[in-house]
């Protein structure tokens, strides 16, 4: 994290510091602003909230959406849980992997709440259901 980022980080911390349970909102805002919650940011957040670095690291590493470094490629989260398996997601994976090669990262997730209309996937904040090979590949190509 560069020094110029520190100003923004400080502003994010200041904006949430005094609310109940400030850690998660800060982590979310930092991830959103910087694309990651870097080691340096974790240190600064811990200091500002009077928490140990282990505590901040524990929370940040528990949630997969907080990353230590910015992601280089777009992420497509594909539900691999039971209902989506029953609705055939595994059969779509070879085509999905071909579509993702060199351009996107496929991440398994376990239930997007769309069990009745799977296979389901999520790109950014958007969810997509009733996926077949072609639609999933198109999603990955546009991610």
């Amino acid at each position: 994290m560069t020094t110029s980022d520190n100003g923004d980080l400080g502003a994010i911390i200041a904006a949430h510091k005094d609310r109940d349970g400030p850690l998660l909102p800060i982590l979310q805002a930092v991830q959103e602003a910087f694309g990651c919650v870097s080691e340096a940011a974790r240190r600064e957040i811990a200091h500002a909230l009077n928490l140990s670095r282990a505590e901040v690291h524990g929370v940040a590493s528990f949630y997969h959406d907080f990353t230590a470094a910015p992601r280089e490629r777009p992420v497509v989260k594909i539900c691999r849980a039971e209902a989506c398996q029953a609705r055939g997601v595994e059969a779509l994976m070879p085509a999905a992997e071909r579509a993702a090669e060199g351009r996107a990262v496929l991440e398994p997730v376990y239930c997007l709440g769309l069990c009745g209309i799977g296979p389901a996937a999520m790109v950014g904040t958007r969810v997509h259901a009733r996926l077949d090979e072609a639609r999933l590949a198109a999603l990955i190509a546009e991610a």
Binding site: L112, G113, L114, A120, V127, A129, R130
Partner: peptide
């Protein structure tokens, strides 16, 4: 809701 938006 999510299921409606996920289906267009």
């Amino acid at each position: 809701d999510a299921s409606a938006r996920a289906t267009g």
